[in-house]
């Protein structure tokens, strides 16, 4: 900012002591316009990102069975329908159970793997890191197909255990990734300090390492939960009639009976996600760990 008048003087070739009043005003208008010009793309991007979800939420309030947007009249009848339906209730319970299982499994495994890879000193460390992150690199439909063949032989198709394992495979890399970032930022002298105070390795890990990895673990857990809750490609192949998760049921509902009940259940899931994020962020600084 301080250089602006100097640059101006150089440009006009005039040694003005101070900019005159109209020019100052003009600059202010230009500065304001510049700020708007900078903010506009950002606002457009935000709109682009948020608009589909807003459309969905508003559509779920449609009083008629049409998907037309904007709705002609509003009602909560689709929420009543979804919450009263036996099928949706089963799917919701299944998805909820899977989220809990998958988050617990991937948080435990992912934390240990990430810590070992980030801080350990053993041959093949990089290979292990690549391996743990590999589900991110492979197209999901290929993972789905491999799991289908694999589970077929093990008799895990159309079982909760199968879905638990399948979702864990897809969600694990997110936890590994976020915990690795936390582990790399962890000051090793803190663990040495704890050891010098008499703490054995397990105690150091439990009382110093784990609390300091918590932001990464929580971020990874949120990713894992969202992944499990929204997973369609893998689930569609390894699930069956008895094990239809919410997203798979939404997927098939959209194909056959396109009414706003899917919008209602999606809006409910979205609200649940937002609620979890807000609560977690209140207690930790989640956004810093992401």
């Amino acid at each position: 900012m301080a250089d602006a008048p100097a640059a101006e003087r150089a440009a006009t070739g005039r040694a003005a002591a101070a900019p005159s009043r109209p020019r100052r005003l003009g600059r202010r208008i230009l500065g304001g316009a510049g700020r708007v010009a900078a903010a506009l793309p950002a606002a457009l991007v935000l709109l682009f990102l948020a608009a589909p979800m807003a459309v969905l939420a508003i559509s779920s309030l449609n009083a008629t069975a049409s998907l037309a947007f904007p709705p002609s009249s509003l009602s909560l009848r689709w929420y009543a329908e979804v919450l009263g339906s036996q099928e949706w209730a089963v799917s919701l319970r299944l998805s909820g159970l899977l989220v809990l299982l998958v988050v617990a499994t991937t948080a435990a495994l992912g934390t240990l793997a990430a810590y070992a890879v980030a801080r350990g000193d053993f041959p093949g460390r990089r290979a292990v890191a690549g391996f743990a992150l590999s589900p991110l690199m492979v197209p999901e439909i290929i993972i789905a197909l491999s799991l289908l063949y694999y589970f077929q032989g093990l008799g895990l198709v159309n079982t909760i255990a199968g879905l638990w394992l399948a979702h864990s495979v897809v969600a694990l890399p997110f936890v590994v990734r976020t915990v690795m970032v936390s582990a790399q930022n962890l000051d090793p002298t803190l663990e040495r300090a704890a050891a010098s105070l008499g703490a054995g390795r397990l105690r150091v890990f439990w009382t110093v390492t784990l609390p300091l990895l918590r932001p990464g673990i929580l971020a990874g857990a949120v990713f894992a939960a969202v992944t499990s809750l929204g997973e369609v490609a893998v689930t569609a192949l390894v699930s069956g009639a008895n094990t239809t998760t919410v997203p798979v049921r939404i997927f098939s509902a959209v194909q056959f009976e396109l009414d706003p009940s899917v919008a209602a259940i999606s809006t409910l899931l979205m609200l649940a996600s937002v609620l979890v994020m807000v609560v977690v962020d209140r207690f930790t600084h989640l956004s810093e760990a992401l």
Binding site: D187, T189, L190, R192, A193, A194, A195, S196, L197, G198, A199, G200, R201, V204, T207, V208, P211, L212
Partner: peptide, 29 residues
Amino acid sequence: PPHRRGLGLVFQNYALFPHLTVAGNVAYG
């Protein structure tokens, strides 16, 4: 091993546990 030597150690960067209070740090050992 270090944790059985019973020596006190003070580090250049202090290495205080950020997730504990001052009292919690001092009480750790």
